[in-house]
């Protein structure tokens, strides 16, 4: 044997986690490093524990299995489990991604494990396609704040501001810092909902209240919640074509 594999179980039902634990007993080379009962916990643990294998339930409250992958960027060593989700199953079949249908047998479990083992460490491009197909635009943004992980609904964001190497996300009266470029997050957000009004500002159109004159021939956006964001000349043109 080369080395033991580190596995993580993600499922919001304890009995479902128990079943996987039981099936894992005969695989002595697999070391169970953690169990998560929520998607949020999974995002944290995938980051800190860096498991080789993840048994990932799809239907979880707040954060689905697919969202966990989208948020963590994890693309390898994933074995999906699901009871029933017509939409997800269709997507899986379309992209030839393996999944375990609950309830599953030890034999089916072993087969999925063998397949995942063979693919170990290799990034699965099918997962990329699957995640892209399941959610073309971000619905939630993940913020890591030391030990804490915040999930912000994209719809609750007022605006995003670029600051050096990171971005400041203003939502619900708070400001969250995230290491990401503004162009990067702009590409993941629905262009019908978010407009780059300035080199350093991206605003949520749903939160836009008025466009005010600012200075000589400049403009500024007044957002719900009272924030005022400068609008550049190209940003103004972009806004006008959308509204």
């Amino acid at each position: 044997m080369s080395h033991t594999l580190r596995a993580l179980i993600v499922d919001d039902e304890s009995l479902a986690r128990h079943l996987i634990r039981e099936y894992l007993q005969r695989h002595t080379d697999i070391d169970l490093v953690g169990e998560c009962d929520s998607g949020l916990q999974a995002v944290r643990d995938i980051d800190t524990l860096e498991p080789d294998l993840i048994f990932l339930d799809i239907q979880m409250p707040k954060l689905t299995g697919l969202e966990v992958l989208a948020l963590t960027g994890r693309r390898s060593g994933v074995i999906f489990t699901t009871a029933y989700d017509a939409y997800a199953l269709q997507a899986f079949d379309l992209h030839a991604v393996d999944y375990l249908l609950k309830p599953f047998s030890q034999e089916r479990f072993d087969a999925a494990l063998a397949r995942a083992r063979a693919m170990l460490g290799r990034s699965q491009p099918a997962l990329d396609a699957l995640i892209a197909a399941s959610a073309p635009w971000l619905e939630r943004v993940l913020i890591r704040d030391r030990e804490q992980v915040h999930v912000i609904l994209v719809s609750s964001i007022d605006y995003i501001e670029a600051q050096d190497d990171y971005i400041a996300i203003h939502a619900e009266g708070k400001c969250y810092l995230k290491t990401q470029s503004l162009a990067d997050i702009e590409a993941r957000l629905d262009p019908k909902g978010f407009v780059r009004v300035h080199r350093s500002y991206l605003i949520n159109l749903a939160r836009l209240q008025t466009i005010e004159r600012h200075g000589k021939d400049g403009h500024a956006a007044r957002l719900a919640g009272g924030h005022k964001v400068p609008i550049s000349r190209t940003g103004y043109e972009r806004l006008r074509t959308i509204i």
């Binding site: 479902a16 079943l19 009871a83 029933y84 249908l101 609950k102």
Partner: peptide, 9 residues
């Protein structure tokens, strides 16, 4: 299916 899975466990 979830109930059957629970029974399985």
């Amino acid at each position: 299916f979830n109930s059957l899975n629970s029974i399985c466990a």
